[in-house]
Amino acid sequence: MTSADVLLQATPAPPAVLIQIATSIVIFAVVMIIVPLLTVFERKLLGRFQSRYGPNRVGPFGLMQPLADVGKLVFKEHSTPSTGVGWLMTIAPMIAVIAAIGTIAVIPFGPVGAWGDFGLYGIDVSIGLLYFFAFGSFAFYALLLGGWASGSKYSFLGAMRSAAQLISYEVAIGLSLLGVVMTAGSMSLVDIVEAQSGTWFGGGGWFIGPQIVGFLIFLIAGFAETARAPFDLPEADAEIVAGYNTEFGGMRFGSYFLAEYIEVLVISIIAVTIFFGGWHGPGPEWLAPIWVLVKAFFFVFLFVWVRATLPRLRYDQLMSFGWKILLPLATLNVMVTAVLVVLT
């Protein structure tokens, strides 16, 4: 990175807009490179969990598998059932990808000064967390419209399940983060990371300590928000074929898949940002984005681990767990934190 520093000093500073565009493109590109690798990572890891190899034929160690998959998906036919609504089936996967990519903009990868005179994030807005939730709530419509527009019973059931599930767990996930917002005194993700700077290898001020309850609720509700096992009821393959995406093929299905993996990565990085000190870590400052990704990697691993380990919940268990356990617990956490924030 020293060469980049020299380059920045030698040439006159480019306008702020250009820097912002460049940062956005780099962040987008990095995320888009990681996401295909996540699919092969998950499949290989699932293989290991089940005492098999996983994909190992395409390229070295099967690393080219995502390319082969995408190549196959792109050339497959888009079919629309006679009862389906064609234009909505086209739009719904687009919404999924737009909503997933939109959330990347607020993720902070590094502070101002890490790589130059600019912060390593798309934007730093005062409503950071709400921005994240706003795009998260768009993701509903991708599943809901996709399932409804397919005009098939299984898709419809999947869509209705996803609507009920996502709306139930969004309440819990919002409340779980409120404790952190109150402690940091800001909703901006950059401010939240900066509030966690501490001694002890940069880990002294992490919110995982005081907000352990909030973190656990966030983690569980995060699994539910991304609709992954053990909360993958919208696409429970043993019950409703593939749920909302039953009738989707080709790259339309691929878009849902892409959105799901972006969401897994984003939720992992958000967990790191909010509870594990974001870019803080030992070593020089320019390591900031590396720390974010390394910490996020553990959560991605956790996502796969849980998927390989836990069985799917029953629907009524899912609902009563969300409303009767997570929600009261999150509310209690918020109240206790509020009292502590006022007292200290």
Partner: peptide, 8 residues
């Protein structure tokens, strides 16, 4: 994000 999901 929430109210309209119920409408839908």
């Amino acid at each position: 994000g929430a109210v309209m999901v119920l409408y839908i």
